[in-house]
Design a protein around this nucleic acid. Structure first.
Lengths: 183, 183
DNA sequence: TAATCCATGTAACGGGTTACATGATTGC
DNA sequence: GCAATCATGTAACCCGTTACATGGATTA
């Protein structure tokens, strides 16, 4: 049982999902390819943490829909009380910034501009996700969600993503402003 | 030549370092253990990207001090113009937050409080790093560093770290404020 | 008609962590 | 006396990415 396994169980605590769906939904929290997820789901099913149901579809390929079992729910609860690993950020750009004084100014500008665009796009993505979330949940528009609401965690995380992307956008703009002007 | 290799070359573009030193200094940008770094340095030396010098010490074990070669500097410049990979964040806490509504309130509070302490500590660490940087460099206290200064990149990155830790601290406080009060 | 989405899987490889191994010095 | 720091290395293992493999439906 590694972190990704618990991540999949976490998603299945919300509702049942296909492997493909789980793969898409776990990306913001724990990037993983389908080739890693499908075998893991098979193992979790063998270990009785999740159960499968084959769903045939007309216009789309058939799919396997996974659901959390009692044993899976117990494992999740135990995991929650275990110490949590520190976050690990790996960003090639930070390494490039470190030796930026040796790079061509045009390269540095492009790199930072690309990253700025990335974070602005991400911010927009998570802001529409927040609107979507508010529509799905039934907490008052002006009021705050309650910690017992199943979508409470998603609400917190979406805000976290928006805040992080805003800060990173701000940093990119500031860094760009320190570079020499074009031509 | 993977990303970690270029990261090591980036650090060596600043000044020469021992393997142990490089291991410590690369942590904020690209977490890696000594067991990954020592063999990589041997490969980089074989490939003529870096050169070694054995330095004997009295009160400490002997060390190998690595320096960037001309070939290494060229490789760094080529790398800078290659497209930069998107940042990858893996954070077990985010997975736990996702299914937080199913956890004991005390567990959730502890997890967020621990993370809050982590980010506050990190912020302090990088703030003293910034003071240290300003002392080492010779840019005016009130003025801004120039992009051509060798420590320009480190200055940008230290600010980035401070900004990120501040935002994360703020998020932890906000999340904690939404949880039910402790009796 | 080419690309993208949905949907699942395996195999090979490279990246990263844990454990094994050694050993002197310094501070509590 | 015990833990931490400095300093280097190897071996085994697990995690994660890339590539191989298939195939229908939709969309540009």
């Amino acid at each position: 049982m590694n972190t990704l396994s618990y991540g999949l169980l976490s998603l299945l605590a919300q509702s049942s999902f296909s492997g493909y769906d789980l793969m898409l939904r776990i990306q913001p929290f724990w990037p993983a390819k389908h080739s890693q997820i499908y075998p893991l789901l098979a193992k979790l099913e063998q270990g009785d943490y999740i159960s499968v149901e084959l769903v045939t579809q007309r216009d789309k390929p058939d799919k396997k829909v996974y659901s959390l079992t009692g044993k899976g729910r117990d494992a999740l609860k135990d995991w929650f009380d275990q110490p949590t690993a520190d976050p690990a950020l790996r960003d090639e750009m930070m390494l490039k910034v470190f030796c930026m004084s040796y790079a061509k100014p045009a390269s540095a500008r492009k790199m930072l501009a690309d990253r700025l665009a990335f974070h602005e796009e991400q911010r927009k993505k998570y802001e529409s996700k927040l609107v979507e979330l508010k529509a799905r949940a039934d907490w008052p528009a002006a009021g705050l969600p309650k910690p017992s609401h199943p979508l409470f965690g998603a609400y917190l995380l979406t805000h976290k993503a928006i805040m992080s992307n805003e800060t990173n956008t701000e940093w990119c703009r500031w860094a760009l402003s320190l570079l020499p002007a074009e031509d």
